[in-house]
Design a binder for these strands. Structure first.
Length: 766
RNA sequence: GCCGGUGUGGCGAAAUGGCAGACGCACAGGACUUAAAAUCCUGGGACCAUCAAAAGUCGUGUGGGUUCGAGUCCCACCACCGGCACCA
C-alpha cells in the first residue's frame, strides 16, 4: 500500500505523484496493509471504449487512455530449469499470492507478459521483480545472500528514489535458469527493480536486441544479445522498416551467412525496438523468418496456444482502486466482522453514520481513528464494525445524482427524477407528480418530457481531476448503470476544461514563487462583478492564461462606464456626501434613492442606428454565450457601451435590453440599475434574474451600403462603398473603374476577376 | 522517450479561406484641475522616406505546398506549456 505517515492514511495510486502525496506533497512509503479495493479494473475496457461516446477534450481523453494503459500481447510460460527433478523443493502455499501473480501455487513455470511475442526467439534471459513470489523458491544457495541483499535494498527505496535512479540498471542473478519454450535454450533468471511487481505478471522475458531497457541491462551484465528482427537499415539501405513485407524484397533470404555475424554485431552496438521482419527465428515446428512483425506475432501466439505454452492477453496499467482510508472524515463502511468473516449491513441499517469522536486525528500506527469509538465499534452480538472509512472521492462519485433529489429518504435518487434529468433526448416521461415523500412541496410538480442532452448537461472542471474524480465517477456511474439504477452509461457527456490561471509572471501560481493571487483581495478591491467579468474577459475559457491585475482594472472601468451610462453624476455626488454624514441607523435604501437616473435616459423610440447597435450586441452576446466565448461577448458589450454613452437621448427600452444581456456577466450591477429603471413603469419583471433573454431581429441588422475591398492579385488596393444589393457585374465594373487599383494591372492581361458578392473583388492579372 | 495542446503588436487577445490586430491593458500626447487622482479626447505592427504627409515594401514560430486569395487547409521542422514515463 502507499502509506503516507504525515497524513496518517493510505492513498490510491492516482493520489501519489512522484512518490509524494497529491494533497500536501508529503512522502509516501510502501507498507503492507490489508485494505479495501474496488475492482475498477473490471471496467477498464468499458472505461476505455466509452471515451469515444463523450464530448471531452482530446488531451483529457488521452490522459485517461494512458492511465488505463491497455496493451495487447501474449502471456508466455517459461519452464524453470530443473523443476520437477526435486532440485527446487520450496513451493508457495499462499493461494492469494499465487492469484496476484497469476502464478501456480507450486510453480514449475514463470509467466511473463509481452507485447512482442514475435521476439521470443531473442529472449536470452529473464528478469523477475524483486518482490516476485518465486524469487525465494528459485534462488540457489550460492546466490541467496546477494539476492536477499538486493531485495532489501529495493524495498528500502521509496517510489521516488526508484524512478529517480532509473537511469542506471541494477540487478542480481538468482542462480536459476529457465527454458525458452521456442528453442529450448537455457537462459538465466535475474531479479532487477526495473521490472515492476505491479504490472503484468511481475516478470519479463528479456530481449536485449530489441528492447532498450533489456539492452542496457544486458550490456551492463554481459548477457547474450540475440537479434531476431531485421530491418533493412542493417544493410545500409535507406528503406524504412515496415510491419509488412515490402513488395519485391525477398526477406527470407535477407540475411546471408556473411551478414549473420554483422547483424549480431550490429545489435550489440545498438538496440532497434522498431517493427521489422523476423530473422534467426525458427525451430523445426514454427518459423517467423521473413514475416512482418504483426504476422509474426499472430503466428507465434497461435503456436504457443496450440502447445499450451501461452495465450493472447490484454494487459492494463490501471490498478484496482484502493478505497479505504484511515481518516475520521469519510463515510464508514457498512461492513461488520463476525468471527473473522466480513459481511455487509442490511439496507435497513443504512445510512451508517460515523460516531462522535473527541480525538479524530489520525493515528501513527495506521489504525483508523474510528477504532477509538469503542461503543460504536462493538455490536451487541459480538461482531465488530469495520473502522476504515471511504475516501473523499466516494461522495464526488454521485453527488450530481443526489442533487437531483436531495430530500429523498428512501432512495439515493428517485427513478423518475433521475430519468428526467439524466435521461437522454427522446426520453418521454409520464409522471403523475413529484415523489410523495416531499411533504414540503404541497403542489406536486409535473415533470415535462426531457429534451435535454443526456447526463449532466455541462460539466466544467480542471484537468487535475483527469485520472481521479473524472475516472472514478465514470466507473461508479457505469456500475450503477449496469445495476439498472441510472439511465446512461456515462455521467458527463459534455465536459469543458477551464484553462489554468497562471501568475502574472506566466508561471503556475505557487506559494514558493510568491505569485499567488488571493481572490478575497480582488473582491475587496474591485467587487465580485468586476472579478468574474475579468475572469471571463481574459481569454478563451479553455486556454491557460496569466493573471494581470491591471486587466481587472480595465473591466472595472468598463463597469464604471456602464454605471455612468445610467446614473446622473451630480446625484451621485450628493449620495456620496450624504453617506459620509449618515449614521448607520438611517436607512440605506433612503440613501440609495438619492442616486437618480441620468436625465438623458428618455422614454423615446430608438433610432434605426441605435437599434442596430443594440441588436448587433444581442446577436453577438447570445451566440457567444452558446459557444462559451465569454471574452468576445464582453467585447461586444464594450462596443455597445462605447457607442451608447455618446447618445444624446438614450431610449430606456434599449438600455433595459442591454441590462438583460449584462446580467449573467455582472449580476449585481445589472440588477441594481434594473431597479433604477423601474421609475419608467416599463413593467419589467420585478427581478432582472427572471427577465426573459432578449431576441435579436435580423431585419434590423441589414446594411444598405457595405465596404468592399478591391484586390489586385490578392493584394488590397482600395475599399469601395457599394449597395448591398450590387450584382456581380456591377461589382466587377466598379472594381475596374477604381483608380487606385488601376496602376497595378495596367499593361498586364486580366486573366479573370473573382467577385464574391458582399465580400470582395479580386482582379487577377499577369 | 511517448501522448496532448499552444505559437498573431510591449502585454491579454480578435478574425465562416476574403480589409490581420476588434475589445481591453500598458504607453504617448491633449482637455479638465492650483495640482494630482478620476474622467474625457487623440495616437500607434515593423520598415523605408520625410519639415510633414501621401505612396510603397514587409508582417500571424520556421521552411515548403494547395488556392485568384492562407493566421485559417496540407506536409516537414522548431520552440514553449501540460500530462505520462523502466508499463515489458
Amino acid at each position: 500500500m502507499n502509506w503516507c505517515p504525515e497524513l496518517g492514511t493510505v492513498l490510491a495510486n492516482e493520489e501519489v505523484i512522484d512518490g509524494k502525496s497529491e494533497v500536501g506533497g508529503f512522502p509516501v512509503i510502501r507498507k503492507p496493509m490489508r485494505q479495501w479495493m474496488l475492482r475498477i479494473t473490471a471496467y477498464a475496457e468499458k472505461l476505455l471504449a466509452d471515451l469515444d461516446t463523450i464530448d471531452w477534450s482530446d488531451s483529457l481523453k488521452e490522459m485517461q487512455r494512458n492511465w488505463i494503459g491497455r496493451s495487447e500481447g501474449a502471456e508466455v510460460k517459461f519452464q524453470i530449469a530443473g523443476s520437477g527433478t526435486g532440485i527446487l523443493p520450496v513451493c508457495s502455499k499462499d493461494k492469494a499470492d499465487a492469484e496476484t501473480h497469476r502464478q501456480d501455487a507450486c510453480a514449475t513455470t514463470i509467466r511473463v507478459f509481452t507485447t512482442r511475442p514475435d521476439t521470443l526467439f531473442g529472449a536470452t534471459y529473464m528478469v523477475l521483480s524483486p518482490e516476485h513470489k518465486l524469487v525465494p523458491q528459485i534462488t540457489t544457495a550460492e546466490q541467496k545472500k546477494a539476492v536477499e541483499d538486493y531485495k532489501a535494498h529495493a524495498a528500502g527505496k521509496s517510489d521516488l528514489e526508484r524512478t529517480e535512479l532509473a537511469k542506471e540498471k541494477t540487478g542480481v542473478f538468482t542462480g536459476a535458469y529457465a527454458i525458452n519454450p521456442v528453442n529450448g535454450e537455457k537462459i538465466p533468471i535475474w531479479i532487477a527493480d526495473y521490472v515492476l511487481a505491479s504490472y503484468g505478471t511481475g516478470a519479463i522475458m528479456a530481449v536485449p536486441a530489441h528492447d532498450e531497457r533489456d539492452w542496457e541491462f544486458a550490456k551492463k551484465f554481459g548477457l547474450k544479445i540475440q537479434p531476431v528482427v531485421g530491418s533493412l537499415q542493417m544493410r545500409g539501405q535507406d528503406i524504412t522498416p515496415s510491419p509488412t513485407v515490402p513488395n519485391g524484397v525477398n526477406l527470407t533470404t535477407f540475411v546471408t551467412i556473411a551478414e549473420k555475424q554483422a547483424a549480431v554485431h550490429y545489435f550489440t552496438d545498438v538496440c532497434v525496438a522498431a517493427d521489422g521482419v523476423g530473422i534467426f527465428s525458427s525451430n523445426p515446428e514454427v518459423s517467423l523468418d521473413g514475416l512482418g512483425t504483426n504476422e509474426a506475432k499472430n503466428k507465434i501466439t497461435a503456436w504457443l496456444e496450440e502447445k499450451n505454452l501461452g495465450k493472447q492477453t490484454i494487459n492494463y496499467k490501471l490498478r484496482d482502486w484502493l478505497f479505504s482510508r484511515q481518516r475520521y472524515w469519510g463515510e464508514p463502511f457498512p461492513i461488520i466482522w463476525k468471527n473473522g468473516q466480513h459481511e455487509a449491513l442490511p439496507e435497513s441499517a443504512l445510512p451508517l453514520l460515523p460516531p462522535t469522536l473527541e480525538d479524530y486525528k489520525p493515528t501513527s500506527s495506521g489504525e483508523p481513528p474510528l477504532a477509538r469509538a469503542k461503543d460504536w465499534l462493538n455490536l451487541p452480538d459480538g461482531s465488530i464494525r469495520e473502522t476504515n472509512t471511504m475516501p473523499q472521492w466516494a461522495g464526488s462519485c454521485w453527488y450530481y445524482l443526489r442533487y437531483l433529489d436531495a430530500k429523498n429518504s428512501t432512495a439515493f435518487v428517485g427513478k423518475d427524477v433521475e430519468s428526467y434529468w439524466m435521461g437522454g433526448e427522446g426520453y418521454r416521461l409520464k409522471v403523475e407528480g413529484f415523489r410523495k415523500d416531499v411533504a414540503a412541496n404541497p403542489e406536486p410538480l409535473t415533470l415535462e418530457p426531457s429534451t435535454s442532452t443526456p447526463g449532466v448537461d455541462l460539466y466544467v472542471g480542471g484537468t487535475e481531476h483527469a485520472v481521479l474524480h473524472l475516472l472514478y465517477a465514470r466507473f461508479w456511474h457505469k456500475v450503477l448503470f449496469d445495476l439498472g439504477l441510472v439511465s446512461t452509461a456515462e455521467p458527463f457527456f459534455k465536459l469543458v476544461n477551464q484553462g489554468l490561471i497562471l501568475g502574472s509572471d506566466g508561471q503556475k501560481m505557487s506559494k514558493s514563487r510568491g505569485n499567488v493571487v488571493n481572490p478575497d483581495d480582488v473582491l475587496v478591491e474591485y467587487g465580485a462583478d468586476a472579478f468574474r467579468l475579468y475572469e471571463m474577459f481574459m481569454g478563451p475559457l479553455q486556454d491557460t492564461k496569466p493573471w494581470n491585475t491591471q486587466g481587472v482594472e480595465g473591466v472595472y472601468r468598463f463597469l464604471g462606464r456602464v454605471w455612468r451610462l445610467f446614473v446622473d453624476e451630480p446625484s451621485e455626488t450628493e449620495f456620496e456626501q450624504a453617506e459620509t454624514v449618515t449614521t448607520k441607523a438611517q436607512s440605506h435604501q433612503g440613501l440609495l434613492d438619492l442616486i437618480k437616473l441620468n436625465s438623458s435616459i428618455k422614454d423615446v423610440a430608438a433610432t434605426p442606428a441605435q437599434l442596430k447597435t443594440l441588436h448587433a450586441c444581442i446577436k453577438k452576446v447570445t451566440e457567444d454565450l452558446d459557444g462559451m466565448r465569454f471574452n468576445t461577448a464582453i467585447s461586444a458589450m464594450m462596443v455597445f457601451v462605447n457607442d451608447a454613452i455618446s447618445w444624446e437621448a438614450k431610449p430606456v427600452s434599449v438600455l433595459k435590453t442591454f441590462l438583460q444581456l449584462l446580467a449573467p456577466f455582472s449580476p449585481h450591477l445589472a440588477e441594481e440599475l434594473w431597479a433604477k429603471l423601474a421609475t419608467f413603469n416599463l413593467q419589467p419583471a420585478t427581478n432582472l434574474a427572471y427577465a426573459p433573454w432578449p431576441k435579436f431581429d435580423a431585419a434590423l441588422l441589414v446594411e444598405n451600403e457595405i465596404e468592399i475591398p478591391v484586390q489586385v492579385n490578392g493584394k488590397l488596393r482600395d475599399v469601395i462603398k457599394v449597395s448591398v444589393t450590387a450584382t456581380v457585374a456591377e461589382l466587377e465594373a466598379l472594381a475596374l473603374a477604381n483608380e487606385k487599383a488601376k496602376p497595378y494591372y495596367e499593361g498586364k492581361t486580366i486573366k479573370k476577376i473573382i467577385v464574391v458578392p458582399k465580400k470582395l473583388v479580386n482582379i487577377v492579372a499577369t
